[in-house]
Design a protein around this nucleic acid. Sequence first.
DNA 1: TAATTAAAGACAATAAGAGTCTGTAATGTC
DNA 2: GACATTACAGACTCTTATTGTCTTTAATTA
Lengths: 140, 140
Amino acid sequence: MKYSNATNYALHTMVYLIWLPKSSTIGVQELAEIQKLSPTYLSKILTKLTKAGLIESTPGAKGGYKISKSPNEISFLDVIIAIEGESNLFNCSIHHNEGCLIEEVMRQSEENMKAELKNRLLVDIVKKMEEQKQQKANSN
Amino acid sequence: MKYSNATNYALHTMVYLIWLPKSSTIGVQELAEIQKLSPTYLSKILTKLTKAGLIESTPGAKGGYKISKSPNEISFLDVIIAIEGESNLFNCSIHHNEGCLIEEVMRQSEENMKAELKNRLLVDIVKKMEEQKQQKANSN
DNA sequence: TAATTAAAGACAATAAGAGTCTGTAATGTC
DNA sequence: GACATTACAGACTCTTATTGTCTTTAATTA
């Protein structure tokens, strides 16, 4: 069990878009180049993010992608669900008369994990990156 | 991303073995029948549990499986790791100069989830099952 | 020795993930 | 309006992991 590569790419792309000046848009080609992915593959991922309402896309010349809401409203969980879907980590496939106690426990800890990822904002990553950059600049 | 069926079967089997009288062993055929699985398939799962030291196996006539330690020492996490392995939920595949901040966050919440599953004991499921049985018996 | 049982390994079928290619629709520019 | 640019959609392939099955081997008891 592992998160998909797509989720990884999506998270990195989102961080990059948040880091970008707010009004500017950027195309797939450029985004793909940064992460060394094929544009068509990354495009699929970006479409999912768009449908989830996390980013905005405008087709046509001078088009591209940009963040669609305030960075403070975008959590890790939002991106993960956008890519992986809402499905549960654990579904008991065995028939029980009145619910599966094992499933109950697994659901509970999944909920806790989700709750934490809901509180983790991507913008905090950007802030940390800038802090690190600053520190490095100071030490030289 | 989802836990495998094998993990589900393993958890149910472990609960059953804990519920069993301590000294008695039970063979794959019987265990497979209960969960409606093929014995050979379940056998593979049981072998993993054996190698992880969670259960003991004795071959030969009158052989079979039984719990190998005190039920109070067997957590959900133990079983999950026995089947799914130790691998991380999230590995950043992108090259970073000094560690990936996204991976850091994901690792952190994975650790928290594991910590919780480490505290959840299978024997508690057995206790709850017996409570439910008792309640049902009383209400009739 | 014979019956029973777990373990190991090869094999097949299925599903999911990862990624490519091609074509279509929308938008801006001239 | 024509053309270039860009996102979107869908079919397709390739690889990998999961889920099993089947057969053989090894260990144990009677």
